[in-house]
């Protein structure tokens, strides 16, 4: 009886301690939707080409949106969604550390709407802008970036933000708040006001609608974004 017990325990132990190794990640994200003119570089070394639904981005991949355009990209590791609004440039990188996948998006300019899924303990997600590094574990909001300043409008969750040039200047931003950080590392946090909320709503609009107005001089077509 004891022998059976020992064998059983060995088998159970062996079955339970078999380590799992994730394969390295090659494709970081996938283009799920495009509106109007969007260009991509699939990898850091690739040529710029017109974006199509279903195109994947690997380490160093880039998305460029033109005027009145947008692209929705979805991360292959956890289905997090990033919407790259018009006139924006986003670069994406990912590295494997142990069992974890750390994703980094470098935004040179523009507006990004994000809905980042809650990250596993081993994983990470961060936005890097000319003025800040924002670490996220699962949250949604809008990032508005230019060369001197980064605005983060947070709907829910929590973001840890630090100055790109002086990490000692940092803050934690909670849902319902707005953070502004400039290249000098100055940080301001305030509640979302009505304008901010409208900005978030506008940034969520990803569908186009057309309105035709018949005039004596012809048909005037107005195309606009909506939810």
């Amino acid at each position: 009886m004891k022998i059976f017990l020992v064998i059983f325990l060995i088998v159970v132990f062996a079955l339970n301690t078999s380590a799992k190794n994730f394969p390295s990640s090659n494709q970081i994200a996938l283009i799920k939707k495009i509106v109007k003119e969007v260009h991509v570089k699939k990898t850091a070394d690739a040529q710029i080409e017109n974006a199509k639904v279903g195109v994947s981005l690997s380490d160093g991949g880039q998305v460029i949106t033109k005027s009145k355009s947008l692209a929705i990209i979805i991360l292959t590791k956890d289905k997090s969604l990033l919407t790259v609004r018009e006139n924006s440039i986003l670069n994406i990188y990912q590295r494997k550390e142990g069992r974890g996948l750390n994703t980094s998006t470098n935004i040179e300019k523009g507006v990004i709407t994000f809905k980042v899924e809650k990250q596993n303990v081993e994983d990470g997600f961060e936005f890097v802008t000319p003025s800040a590094v924002a670490s996220i574990r699962g949250t949604s909001g809008v990032l508005d970036v230019d060369s001197t300043e980064t605005d983060i409008l947070l709907e829910e969750g929590e973001v840890f933000v630090q100055s790109k040039f002086d990490p000692s200047k940092n803050a934690t931003l909670n849902g319902g708040k707005k953070l502004v950080i400039n290249v000098d590392g100055n940080i301001e946090i305030q509640d979302l006001d009505e304008n901010d909320k409208k900005k978030i709503d506008d940034a969520k609009k990803t569908n186009t609608k057309k309105l035709n107005i018949i005039t004596p001089y012809g048909i005037l077509e107005i195309e606009y974004l909506t939810n």
Binding site: Q27, L30, G54, S56, T76
Partner: peptide, 11 residues
């Protein structure tokens, strides 16, 4: 089928 991704598009 491209490495770790499978896609089927309209095309």
């Amino acid at each position: 089928v491209d490495q770790e991704l499978i896609t089927i598009t309209r095309e």
